[in-house]
């Protein structure tokens, strides 16, 4: 059963990723990327990492894709225009692809003695949402609070820079 689920979700991920590359319309490509992310999240569930799966869905399928769609909307990309990559780009892509193939082959060779059991046991703090939460509010309390300040600065900055001013330079409400 687990094997069947793995192959199904792996196929979803790969097909989704493949169609992102092949799709001509950027909006469709962004949507297909969600399919690929859902496949990855499902693979995490098969591995027993439920929290990671939820984060994958919330952050990538939710926030990042919305960001992509916003950028596509703002840039007003023309779907019909054909884009021809330069030789430099093509060479870069080729090298990255070859490296990726070697990395995957290496994983297959080295990964024989890894099973899902050893993976979840070797994780230092476990994989449940509760263990992440407890860890976050004990050992990582200070960086967690500091991240709040980071977001406050970002919010202040965005409001300040994009605030509308009237001609006299006084703040408009």
């Amino acid at each position: 059963m687990v094997d069947f689920l793995f192959y199904m979700f792996a196929l979803t991920t790969l097909l989704g990723a493949g169609s992102v590359v092949l799709s001509r319309n950027p909006v469709n490509a962004a949507m297909l990327l969600i399919v690929s992310f859902v496949g990855t999240a499902s693979l995490f569930i098969v591995l027993g990492a439920y929290f990671l799966a939820a984060v994958q869905l919330a952050v990538y399928a939710g926030a990042v894709i919305v960001l992509f769609l916003f950028i596509i909307m703002l840039l007003n990309v023309d779907a019909s225009r054909k884009w021809k990559p330069s030789y430099f780009t093509m060479a870069g892509g080729l090298i990255a692809g070859i490296l990726m193939v070697f990395a995957v082959l290496h994983l297959f060779k080295r990964g024989e003695n890894f099973t899902t059991d050893t993976l979840s046991e070797s994780a230092p703090i476990g994989t449940t949402t509760q263990s992440f939460g407890v860890e976050l509010f004990t050992a990582y309390m200070l960086p967690f609070q500091l991240a709040g300040i980071l977001l406050l600065i970002a919010m202040l900055g965005v409001i300040f820079i994009s605030k509308r001013t009237s001609d006299k330079g006084k703040e408009a409400v």
Partner: peptide, 24 residues
């Protein structure tokens, strides 16, 4: 390194805003 990264990032993001403060 976790704290180092978060602190450094807070500093850098603050400076992004401050550098473009004269927004007119």
């Amino acid at each position: 390194f976790v704290l180092l990264f978060v602190a450094l990032e807070t500093v850098t993001i603050g400076f992004y805003v401050l550098v473009s403060y004269n927004r007119d």
